[in-house]
Write a protein that binds this DNA or RNA. Structure first.
Lengths: 332, 332
DNA sequence: TTGAAAGCGCTAACAA
DNA sequence: TTGTTAGCGCTTTCAA
């Protein structure tokens, strides 16, 4: 900055004014400084500035997700990035892999870099360790799962309603022996989805003894093997509600292996790429990760703009997409 | 830091020593300082430190990709993040959408935040504007596409060989009238893939008049319509080589519409999720984005560790995956 | 083993 | 409209 000032023949503060588009710089001076910046290929150091700047803002936010390799997280990330870009904010991202210790170290890495706000999908059971940041007023928006141990803004999918929607759809087509496939039971969303499933069974007067609930499925393989086991029962389910992506794929594979993909109904929670190109097409309850990211970013920036209204939980609705697999009637 | 020093009854420099795990701190002092840090919930400001630190390292790198919502980019990102995490580096990401102006502004945003290195998929035709950074010694690794206008390290997919592999596979099954479907012709990779396609035609002695080359397909819709047009020709192609993901999906849709998915062979460049669950399964030349990200990050960190050996271009091989669609023989 | 003082690149406050 | 000075939180240098 000193070099630029010297080159332009002005004081260092004038360069600062130009960089920050502050008023009270004459057109001629502005031109000279701009030229000097271009000539010297100068990029101001945003962090040196934020050190002294009021509030110490860095125009940087942090995003924590399950894994950036996961398309669901990718869509959230992209929506957050789009909102951030509009305001000249940069985005740090970190993958947590459902590992509580990674959550803590990633948050710490962000705090050491003085992010202005954080959007996070939690991986640990309690966020009480973030209490000092909440009290300090660091904006935080939880996505996909609410915080535990602290009160914050949140943006969630309507898991209960989505699961109920899927369940009712199957019940309406005459199914009673429906299987629920869930992933790790300590993940908040799966509990919600099971709740929606059970609620709708109750509404229809179906006893939980008629249904099968399998939980803690870890991946495609365990899901596929669970489905094979279920369908070998004396009184096998006529429909399956799979509460997560990879589990749905496992279920599809198992049904194919048994050549039952046109006899047993299947509805998955969360959409799959090319689900409409399979035979039958896979009916799903579709989430809207892009809307989640968008709402979370808007909420975060509203807080950064000084919104100190009451905490808000935004619920993003789901959409049922019928493609064939969910419309199969119970076997005669 | 001053608060921590006061709380622990030591000088500020001693706190600095503890934070940076420097030697010459007695066990008793270390314990007191550690306790003070915990009590005060202190997180050091990494940027204030880098201001004075030799070399000014921030333990931060920047990653530029097409779009973080794209699974190919997501896999690269995840691999980069994994390498970065091992070393306590944070990762900034930005999506470019093939927009040259976004490339420049995103790079500038990273430079203003003093990243220690950059990994980028270029979107603009020339990177000559980065010459000052190259000369300054800022480590940069280009992924997926080489830089133009500057010399840097790069990690690329073996596009020519991959395309040749796919083409040879079709030729070996008796096809001669093969269609090549390409996306925007100004994207470097598609040119390479066309080159591999043409090379293999030459080896087999097939005239380019026998094949159809369609380029500048923008998305699924334009690809699908191009395929429908091709198959309505008097002498339609018996096989299709699609050089990109979305275009492959468009081709699949078009073949379905025409009910030709079991009569016209199809090989795509880049793998698709659930491609094995379609009927027929989609044969592809699979890239390895995770290996690309891994190699790029390793190269970047090697440079940060002081490796000043000659510039290196790492080529990541492709794999052919036969699933059915590529093994369909020419219609009689 | 420890700490005091200077200074990294910038902005706030204030003076000219 | 412009510039000067102090100081943000840390590391470097050097002295105790």
């Amino acid at each position: 900055m000193r070099d630029v000032a010297r080159y332009a023949g002005v004081g260092i503060k004038t360069v600062s004014r130009v960089i920050n588009s502050e008023p009270n710089v004459s057109a001629a001076t502005l031109a000279r400084v701009t030229e000097a910046i271009a000539q010297l290929n100068y990029e101001p150091d945003i962090h040196a500035g934020s050190l002294r700047r009021r509030g110490g803002v860095t125009r940087t936010i942090g995003l924590l997700v399950g894994s950036v390799a996961n398309p669901f997280a990718g869509s959230i990330h992209r929506a957050v990035e789009d909102r951030a870009l509009e305001r000249g904010f940069a985005v740090f991202t970190s993958s947590l892999d459902e590992d509580p210790s990674r959550e803590r170290s990633a948050v710490s890495a962000f705090l050491r870099r003085r992010v202005d706000g954080v959007i996070l999908t939690r991986a640990s059971p309690s966020q009480a360790y973030l209490l000092p940041e909440v009290q300090r007023g660091l904006p935080m928006v939880f996505v996909d799962r609410p915080a535990t141990g602290i009160e914050t803004d949140a943006v969630l999918t309507d898991n209960i309603d989505g699961a109920a929607l899927a369940t009712r759809h199957l019940i309406d087509r005459g199914h009673r022996r429906i299987a629920f496939l869930g992933d790790r039971a300590d993940i908040w969303t799966v509990g919600q989805r099971r709740e929606g499933f059970l609620r709708e069974l109750g509404v229809a007067g179906i006893s939980t003894r008629e249904v099968s609930i399998v939980e803690n499925l870890e991946d495609e393989l365990t899901a596929a093997s669970a489905v094979r086991d279920l369908l070998r029962l004396d009184d096998p389910p006529t429909a399956i509600f799979s509460s997560q992506n990879l589990i749905t794929i496992g279920a599809i594979r198992a049904l194919r292996t048994l050549e039952l993909q046109r006899r047993v109904a299947l509805v998955g929670f969360d959409d799959l790429p090319m689900a409409d190109l399979l035979e039958p097409g896979i009916s799903v309850v579709s989430q809207n990760p892009s809307a989640i990211g968008d709402a979370a970013a808007r909420q975060l920036f509203a807080r950064l703009d000084g919104d100190d209204g009451p905490l808000r939980t935004t619920v993003i609705p789901t959409t049922f997409i019928a493609r064939g697999s969910g419309e199969i009637p119970p076997a005669a």
